[in-house]
């Protein structure tokens, strides 16, 4: 049975089994390699995608669960104005080191700002606490989200 969902604004379908990891479907079938695999057990957040407005670990979601759902990955999000603001903010403080956590981190940033366009530092840190980064110590990422909140007035 084909499973239909919206992926980065397009209606798509997958013939994979309903219990296949969404992560594997996205990476191998579509193939959206911006979705990173860091642990396959829901701990690191590298495979984060936005499902119906919520940040989820795509390794912990079965394909069947997303039938009729709306998924955004970095490949779709990078085409948005909001991304452009985050891109600039992350660049200004050099918040990108090895880069492996970054697609997930950007989508987490989007979810923080969508919830509250002027988040407190505590809200930012909570919002990225499911996304591990081993390089930066998180300060630069937190700062980047602050900058994006400041510069992206009206977008969120």
């Amino acid at each position: 049975m084909m499973i239909e969902f919206t992926l980065n604004g397009q209606t798509v379908e997958s013939a994979a089994k309903a219990n296949t990891r969404l992560l594997d479907v996205l990476r191998h079938e579509f193939p959206l390699t911006g979705v990173k695999c860091g642990c396959k057990e829901g701990e690191c957040g590298a495979c984060s995608v936005i499902l119906d407005g919520k940040l989820v670990n795509s390794c912990m979601i079965a394909l069947g669960f997303v039938a009729g759902g709306n998924i955004t990955t970095i490949e779709g999000y990078r085409e948005t104005e909001r991304f452009a603001v985050l891109d600039k903010a992350y660049a200004a403080v050099s918040a990108v080191q090895c880069g492996f956590c970054i697609p997930g981190m950007i989508l987490a940033s989007e979810c923080i700002l969508a919830k509250n366009p002027n988040p407190s530092e505590g809200e930012i840190r909570d919002g990225i606490s499911g996304n591990l980064c081993r390089c930066t110590g998180y300060n630069a990422i937190v700062e980047a989200i602050h900058i994006a909140a400041r510069e992206g007035k009206g977008l969120w």
Binding site: T33, G34, I74, A91, S94, G99, I102
Partner: peptide, 11 residues
């Protein structure tokens, strides 16, 4: 701006 910023942040 870091040389590898663009390719990494865009996935």
């Amino acid at each position: 701006k870091k040389k590898d910023h663009e390719e990494k942040i865009s996935g």
